[in-house]
């Protein structure tokens, strides 16, 4: 053993001076190359996050910030009013329902889609490219089309419903309480199943063939093959997707703001923070609200990763 180690150790020590010059040069070059990135991220992301925390502890408006900068007196009032406001908890409940159901839905649809596309067929490449349209298209354009499609007066969905499906009245999908939340969830599934589809398809391509071939010889049914052979191998990517999608939908703003404006029982947290900021100019309240939400998200993610995801990890 020691005989094997010695020459390996001796070699670098002989070339050491040259190497450390290169190392020092690389260190300098590396730092110089990442510096602009770090500066931008610091200035536009990290500093604002810190500032948000300070704002959350201050009773501020645009005028006091203009005169005093960041040096306003500190207070816990914002947090107290956020946490004692029943509408905060209502909005949090809506956000949880929205993010959990649309995460599960988009992953389920993405899974079904990638299984359906697994075996090649004529035109698969084109069909696959279509699948990604909802995900890449501008959110403002697709929410606008959905609004028109779901319009109670001339939208195609209500026309079909009342004409062919026997609905007594057109349904106000985006303006009435139970429908609006269901609609924004369906929209979210529609828009983000392609994301799950991409991830799961990539994993499916990489699955080893021999296991399934052996199982086929043993006479497993297609369902058993999926349930006991394919699905377990997809679990790591599915748990990764769940985390990513949960974070993204929990903080979602655009889609709901554009579809319903947060009305009719769709008052999710990000829209609420926006309305606090620009509707009532309550900067401190909005900052405290945003901070509490991030904290809730961070804690639940920590618990999730700690107790559930780590078991399915394969890295």
């Amino acid at each position: 053993m020691s005989q094997l180690v010695t020459p390996a150790k001796a070699a670098p020590s002989r070339g050491r001076p040259r190497r450390s010059i290169t190392a020092r040069r690389d260190n300098r070059a590396g730092l110089a190359m990442v510096l602009p990135t770090v500066i931008i991220i610091m200035a536009i992301v990290i500093v604002p996050v810190g500032w948000n925390l300070i704002l959350a502890f201050q009773s501020t408006s645009f005028t006091t910030i203009a005169t005093n900068g960041i040096f306003n007196p500190l207070t816990l009032d914002n947090f107290i009013s956020v946490l004692t406001d029943p509408s905060f908890w209502g909005s949090l409940g809506t956000t949880v329902i929205y993010s959990v159901t649309s995460t599960i839905g988009s992953i389920a649809v993405g899974l079904v889609a990638s299984l359906a596309f697994r075996r090649p067929f004529r035109g698969r490449a084109v069909a696959r490219a279509f699948m990604l349209l909802p995900y890449v298209a501008p959110v403002v354009a697709v929410t606008f089309v959905w609004q028109i499609m779901l319009n109670p007066q001339f939208g195609i969905i209500d026309i079909i419903g009342t004409k062919y499906l026997g609905w007594a009245h057109p349904i106000d999908f985006l303006g009435k309480a139970p429908f609006a939340l269901i609609t924004v969830i369906v929209f979210e599934i529609w828009r983000y199943f392609p994301f799950a589809f991409l991830f799961i398809t990539a994993r499916l391509v990489g699955l080893p063939k021999d296991v399934e071939e052996a199982a086929l010889v043993d006479g497993v049914t297609p369902w058993q093959n999926f349930r006991f052979i394919v699905f377990p191998q997809l679990l790591p990517v599915i748990s990764l997707l769940s985390v990513l999608r949960l974070i993204m939908t929990f903080n979602k703003f655009d889609d709901i703001y554009l579809l319903t404006g947060g009305g009719a029982g769709t008052d999710v947290s990000a829209v609420r923070v926006y309305n606090q900021l620009l509707g009532s100019f309550d900067i401190g309240g909005a900052a405290a609200n945003a901070f509490v939400l991030s904290a809730i998200l961070a804690v639940s993610l920590f618990i999730y990763v700690r107790f559930f995801a780590s078991r399915g990890e394969d890295d």
Binding site: V38, P48, W51, A270, V273, Y274, A290, S294
Partner: peptide, 22 residues
């Protein structure tokens, strides 16, 4: 650096929107 990027990816946009607006 890599951790920094992950953190940036995970932060809710709305949380930086308020200070950036101000």
């Amino acid at each position: 650096i890599s951790t920094l990027f992950l953190v940036v990816y995970l932060f809710p946009v709305i949380i930086i929107a308020i200070p950036l607006f101000v």
